[in-house]
Design a protein around this nucleic acid. Structure first.
Length: 662
RNA sequence: GCGCCUGUAGCUCAGUGGAUGAGAGCGUCUGCCUUCUAAGCAGAGGGCCGCAGGUUCGAAUCCUGCCAGGCGCGCCA
């Protein structure tokens, strides 16, 4: 509908010589109700191009729009007016808008605002990628939450999405754990989770290296044995990695984060991905062997001729060391080529495990598996923190040099700032922090950080306390289920609500907050709507929902028939005040979904959902539903039910469960 | 040194393509539960939007310079 409006405005503007496309017509919600229901500042920007006062342009555009409106071609629009300093403001026929909205929500249910699934091209999203040598901390959690929300955004927009989790099982970090097991002779205490055990062990190994440099040689030996494969050390390393990966999966699953494929670095090595990529790069001339200079004996990508790299101290990137081994970046280039289906090689695959949502998680293998339809993406999004920007630039540049211009354009580094500890949080962990200190960086080596599982557990404890205070009547397992949902909402929302460029100074109180701008606030709005509807059903004002339908916890239920009225039950009175604001907020959702996906900006959508919750809460506080006059009551019930569904769908995009009671 | 990011209320942050209120949450203060869940709502207080220039009818937003902070610039991953 907004698209119709854009087209009409563009046409009108073009008739007076503007030359704009409908997409260039920006639409916004006016700050005050007097200004109308929707507004376009287009004529303000046109003023410069047309060299005429904006208000005059706006008047002419409005003149033309009035004809379109009188022909009934813009069904929502009651009138268009020009306003100083040059806005075109639209006043809607809110009864019509509300009626259309209710009809659409009745049809699409929680899918409102989404495109039909699986209709678009394929997007590969790589996220989580935690070194398999210790417990996940809250920095990893930000990565996973951002990545998973991006995946959900893209799915909502109709793309086919494949989520990959890359496991670096052959790197130094795993080797350090093997060294620790060998030299320090530690074993997990009874009941101690293996990832927690390794968290401490990893730190101890770093301390060992400090006091005993000879121990470092042990690492070198372990690394080469891992690379060789087929020996006891390599098997131990793999066991460590597997055990940690299991823990990481069990960390993420309660948050509704699932994967399609695990890709193991050892498989990338064994499948000869880099050897293959190496030939391509060499033939193409991207890769050069240096005979002199600091990189003598290495194969490098020359970057010094590029403006964005030229000023670096040493701009060329080594891919093959003088001892003939490949660097991390080299493997990454091969992996990236594979993701686009450009490598000409493939893994084999086998099912790894079944995830709680019922989906199968697959893993790469090299020998025993079957062929699979992984990779071959149109677009690849790598969720990696900003510190790896340079490497991701090298990656993109290498694709370009290989002639894969389109793949390079669709190689997206979703760069986000890291999570650090606020001074307060650091002190709570027992660290010495000066008074003027800002945030304190987490450090795996020093064992400084907040573990992801600990955070979720703390959130669950707090939530459970609240639920018990409110719903003593509920069975214990129900209360725990609700508490888990709330904990998930609190943590996930905290992880995506900040702009990716913002360094999150982690604070326990904020992350665990269940009031104000928080996940539980969003969930609460939904629960309150459910509560009204439940009472309405008790009083026979509504049909019972179809039996056997799973609660709107997650997943998008298809449009089940319920209270949402068809177009026939349009608003009886004027849709004004909080109801109007709620309707306007709801019809905004498809636009925000588009925008957030286009800009790869989960925080934009999170912020919208907060506004949606506020709009409903405002309505709830000011507008009686069950106690209203019957005609008005039916409309309000329909509106509440529509909100309930739209909100459940919106929460689902954020991966946040929508409990009906809380 | 070079590059990227950041500087908005006491604190944590949002403000995408310039324009019609500089906003939210937390914290502080004052009110509101015999009416659909107070995890809520209403109100008060609190801001030369880092500084200085520039462009414009108009700048938190664009340009330049400066100041402050974070990160990056490995034959680590």
């Amino acid at each position: 509908m907004q698209q119709l409006l854009r087209e009409a405005v563009a046409r009108a503007a073009n008739e007076i010589g503007a030359g704009v496309t409908p997409e260039e017509v920006s639409l916004e919600t006016p700050p005050r109700e007097e200004f109308g229901d929707l507004s376009s500042p287009l004529c303000l920007t046109l003023a410069r191009v047309l060299r005429r006062p904006p208000l005059e342009i706006a008047r002419q555009v409005v003149e033309r729009l009035e004809q379109v409106i009188s022909r009934g071609e813009l069904p929502w629009v009651g009138e268009a007016t020009a306003a100083a300093p040059g806005y075109v403001n639209f006043r809607f026929d809110m009864g019509k808008v509300a009626g259309d909205l209710l009809a659409e929500v009745a049809e699409r249910g929680e899918e409102y605002g989404r495109r039909r699934p699986g209709s678009g091209p394929k997007v590969v999203i790589e996220h989580t990628n935690i070194n398999p040598n210790k417990a996940a901390h809250i920095g990893h959690l930000r990565n996973a939450c951002l990545g998973d929300t991006l995946a959900r955004l893209y799915r909502a927009r109709g793309y086919r999405v494949e989520v990959q989790n890359y496991i670096d099982d052959t790197g130094v970090q795993v080797a350090d754990i093997v060294v620790g097991l060998e030299r320090l002779g530690r074993r997990p205490r009874p009941g101690e989770p293996f990832d927690y055990f390794c968290w401490d062990l990893y730190t101890e190994v770093q301390e060992l290296y400090e006091r005993d440099p000879e121990a470092r040689e042990g690492r070198r030996r372990v690394l080469s044995l891992i690379e060789e494969g087929d020996n006891e050390v390599a098997r131990t390393a793999r066991e460590v990695a597997e055990a940690i990966v299991r823990e990481h999966l069990h960390t993420m699953w309660p948050l509704g984060i699932y994967y399609d494929l695990l890709t193991w670095e050892s498989d990338i090595l064994r499948a000869g991905f880099f050897r293959h990529a190496f030939e391509k790069l060499r033939e193409q001339g991207t890769l050069v062997k240096e005979e002199t200079g600091p990189n003598a004996g290495c194969w490098v990508v020359k970057l010094s001729d590029l403006p964005e790299f030229a000023d670096l101290e040493n701009p060329d990137k080594v891919l093959v060391r003088s001892d003939g081994t490949a660097t991390y970046t080299a493997k990454d280039i091969a992996y990236q080529l594979w993701k686009f289906g450009l490598l000409g090689r493939d893994f084999r695959y086998r099912p790894y495990t079944r995830q709680p949502d019922g989906s199968t998680l697959w893993t790469s293998t090299t020998r025993d598996g079957q062929e699979g339809d992984f990779g071959r993406a149109w677009r690849v999004i790598n969720v990696i923190d900003v510190r790896q920007k340079y490497l991701q630039d090298v990656l993109r540049y290498s694709l370009r040099r290989l002639g894969y211009e389109e793949a390079a354009r669709n190689s997206i580094h979703f760069a986000y700032e890291v999570v650090a500890l606020s001074a307060r949080a650091a002190r709570e962990l027992g660290l010495e922090v000066g008074d003027d200190a800002g945030a304190v960086a987490m450090s795996g080596r020093k064992g400084v950080g907040v573990k992801a599982k600990d955070l979720l557990a703390a959130a669950q404890r707090l939530a459970l306390r609240e639920v018990e205070a409110r719903h003593a009547d509920l069975e214990a397992h129900r209360r725990e289920e609700i508490a888990r949902a709330i904990a998930c909402g609190a943590v996930r929302y905290y992880m995506v609500r900040f702009h990716p460029n913002t360094l999150v100074a982690f604070d326990f109180d904020e992350a665990l907050s269940m009031q104000g701008n928080s996940g539980p606030y969003l969930q609460y709005a939904h629960a309150r709507a459910c509560s009204i509807l439940a009472r309405a059903r008790e009083r026979g004002l509504l049909a019972e929902p179809p039996a056997g339908r799973s609660p709107a916890a997650s997943g998008a239920a298809s449009g089940t028939p319920g209270a949402v009225a068809g177009p026939a039950s349009g608003a009886p009175g004027a849709v004004a005040g909080p109801a109007r604001a709620l309707v306007l907020k709801m019809i905004e959702m498809p636009l925000v979904l588009d925008k957030a996906c286009e800009l790869n900006l989960p925080s934009l959508f999170a912020d919208y959902v907060y506004g949606l919750a506020q709009a409903f809460t405002n309505f709830y506080e000011t507008t009686p539903v069950l106690a209203a006059e019957p005609g008005e009551r039916d409309f309000r019930l329909a509106l509440v039910d529509a909100f309930r569904r739209v909100m459940a769908g919106a929460l689902d995009v954020l991966g946040i469960p929508a409990p009906e009671v809380m």
